[in-house]
Design a protein around this nucleic acid. Sequence first.
DNA 1: GTAATGACCCGTC
DNA 2: GGACGGGCCATTA
Length: 108
Amino acid sequence: MNTYTRIYEVVRQIPRGKVTTYGRVAELAEMYGKARVVGYALYKVDTNSDIPWHRVVNAKGEISYSPLRQGMDYVQRNLLEDEGIEFTREGKINLRQYEWISELPTLS
DNA sequence: GTAATGACCCGTC
DNA sequence: GGACGGGCCATTA
């Protein structure tokens, strides 16, 4: 279970108004290449949990909808918009601007 | 115990 | 520039 705990810790550290990708979370959790597990971990997370699961998006910068939450997809978008994140007309997020870089080098 | 699935990512055509 | 396939690991049936 420590595996999931790592992921939760990382996701919990995402500042407000920023988003990150599954791959980044996996890397921060020291599990590069296991992005799938990250998605699985968030899958188990409950909507009313203290984990900002809505700040985690896929590498394309789009929101990952869960079949479990179909119908509530707009909720995630609303939460992100409330944090100041803008969406394109395609429903995508500009990762270049809102991607959380944590402590990784940005090489400008 | 085996087999299949999944909120994904990356390299290649 | 977009589309396709393979692969990573843990959980569930």
